[in-house]
């Protein structure tokens, strides 16, 4: 497993740059990954979604929530999610929140 220094902290990542241990995550890391993903500053609207993903993942066996779970849980519409996290919000939020990529069974 590869490691990478993000925001001054060494964390484990997979081939696609997703963190593999959610416990290593912190808010500075989130901000740094967001910049890499083209989001220069995380606003309260971003944090609302990120915090939701961080809190629901425990009930999902460590998986990241689906778009529908995010919209139902935060009240943020899918359209808004796409403007907050352009080009694939489910994947992007998961990456910024230090969770695994949304996956199928294969």
């Amino acid at each position: 497993m590869a490691t990478k220094v993000i925001a001054g902290k060494e964390v484990q990542i997979n081939d696609e740059g997703f963190m593999t241990d959610p416990a290593e995550w912190n808010k500075e890391i989130a901000a740094a990954i967001a910049v890499e993903e083209g989001i220069s500053a995380l606003t309260d609207a971003h944090w609302k979604v990120i915090d939701f993903c961080r809190t629901t993942t425990a009930g999902l066996g460590g998986k990241s929530p689906t778009l529908r779970q995010i919209t139902a849980g935060t009240g943020v519409s899918t359209k808004e999610l796409f403007s907050l996290f352009p080009k694939g919000p489910a994947k992007k939020v998961a990456k910024i929140a230090g969770l695994g990529k949304p996956e199928g069974c294969v």
Partner: peptide, 13 residues
């Protein structure tokens, strides 16, 4: 056309 990042998403598969 899939909402996931590809037809196969698990690394080994």
């Amino acid at each position: 056309a899939t909402p996931l990042s590809g037809a196969f998403t698990k690394p080994i598969a």
